[in-house]
Structure formats: structure tokens, C-alpha cells
């Protein structure tokens, strides 16, 4: 599925300073019954966001109007657990384009990159400074520059660089995906597969 190209993103951010946010919290299993990729944003963080009677939980950050933006900032080990890409879809469909954490679970990170969300891994210190900046001013603007591989707290100029391999970077900046790449090397795969043991 096509996604928006990622170059520079400047936005306020939504803070979620909880460790080990697992994909069952991001999207509970009972919302995985669709056969199309539609409407997952409505159920993002469903059980943290809504009571059993579907009324919003006022103390959850997505229900607090002072926080908004296209960047979600989470605690350490974000996206652990299930391989459900629905978790990344829910985050994208809600309107986030970038998730910042000090540590990401592998499958979530892959899934995010595959659908056009940039996972930005920062040091624990820097993550802490982002949380503090947002706490002081919920409208704090973060600038994520994929080309330069930097994330900056604009109010203070505090900045850190992040890693991404050049292949994935190129894909994100141009809106390409792995399926395009693999289709272009079908013959090579075919030859390799004919000679494979299984």
C-alpha cells in the first residue's frame, strides 16, 4: 500500500512515557477481524483510551486535547509482543508518521518501516529530555530530518542523530517498498529457488 514520502517532519508530539508498550495495547486482538486495512486508527490503544462502555478515559493522553501531533513518543521497548502489522496500521491511520523511543521491538520496527512510519531510536537521556520538554510545554515542536538522520527539540536546539540503513532511508524518502524491490529481482530469486534444498 502506498504511503506518504518521509523527508522532514516538524510537529508537536504525544507523550506516552510507559515502558514495554506491547502490540496488544496498541491494538487488542479482538479488533483484528477485518479483511481490509480500514478503521484501525479508531481502535488505537483501545483499552487505555476507552472504558468498557466506550466512553473516553479522561486520563489517557490521546483524550487530552492539549497533546497532539504526528509524532508519538513512547517509553523503552516500544511495540513488543505480537507480529500484528495492525499495530503499525493503527498508529499510521490515527495520523502518526513517526514513533520515538529509546528501544523498539524488532518486528514492530520492521512493520513500521514497511508501511511508512519512521521509528526513531534515541538515547534514554534524550528521550527523557523530550518528555521533560513536552511536560513543560505540550506544544513543543520536534523536527525529524530523515535526510540528515537527526531529531531536534526546536525550542532548545537540543539534537541527536539516529540510525537507519541507507536502503530503508531511500525507500522512505521516495515512497518505495520492498515488494517493488523484490519484483524487480524475480529472475534471480527464481534461479536461486530452483537450486535450493527445500
Amino acid at each position: 500500500m502506498a504511503y506518504d514520502k518521509f523527508t522532514v517532519l516538524t510537529s508537536s508530539a504525544v507523550p506516552l512515557p510507559i515502558e514495554n508498550v506491547d502490540t496488544d495495547q496498541i491494538i487488542p486482538a479482538r479488533f483484528l477481524k477485518a479483511t481490509k486495512r480500514e478503521g484501525f486508527g479508531d481502535n488505537l490503544f483501545r483499552d487505555w483510551r476507552y472504558n468498557g462502555d466506550d466512553t473516553p478515559k479522561q486520563d489517557f493522553v490521546l483524550n487530552n486535547a492539549i497533546y497532539s501531533g504526528k509524532i508519538l513518543v513512547g517509553g523503552k521497548n516500544f511495540g513488543s509482543g505480537s507480529s500484528r502489522e495492525h499495530a503499525a496500521w493503527a498508529i499510521y491511520d490515527y495520523g502518526f508518521r513517526c514513533v520515538v523511543s529509546s528501544f523498539f521491538a524488532d518486528i514492530f520496527k520492521n512493520n513500521s518501516l514497511n508501511i511508512g512510519i519512521l521509528p526513531v531510536q534515541v538515547s534514554e537521556d534524550f528521550l527523557d529530555r523530550i518528555f521533560k520538554a513536552i511536560e513543560a510545554d505540550p506544544q513543543t515542536q520536534l523536527e525529524v530530518d530523515l535526510s540528515k538522520q537527526t531529531i531536534t527539540i526546536l525550542s532548545t536546539g537540543d539534537s541527536e542523530s539516529f540510525d537507519i540503513n541507507s536502503y530503508k532511508k531511500h525507500n522512505l524518502m521516495n515512497g518505495f517498498d520492498d515488494i517493488d524491490y523484490l519484483q524487480a529481482m524475480k529472475e534471480e530469486i527464481s534461479t536461486f529457488a530452483q537450486n535450493s534444498r527445500y
Binding site: 505480537s82 507480529s83 500484528r84 502489522e85 495492525h86 503499525a88 524488532d106 518486528i107 520492521n110 512493520n111 514497511n114 508501511i115 540503513n165 517498498d177 520492498d178 515488494i179 524491490y181 523484490l182 519484483q183 529481482m185 524475480k186 530469486i189 529457488a193
Partner: peptide
């Protein structure tokens, strides 16, 4: 053996391959 996302399921169906850095 490992778990993959749905985009990768589509990759395997269409090309029998996935693209991953070595762990």
C-alpha cells in the same frame, strides 16, 4: 523461524523472499 508482518506475508506470497538485516 520467525514472525513477520502482513507486508512481509505479501512479499513471501509474491516473491518467496523477505528483506531483513541479519540479527
Amino acid at each position: 523461524a520467525f514472525g513477520i508482518g502482513t507486508s512481509e506475508v505479501e512479499m513471501v506470497l509474491s516473491s518467496q523472499c523477505i528483506m531483513q538485516p541479519k540479527a
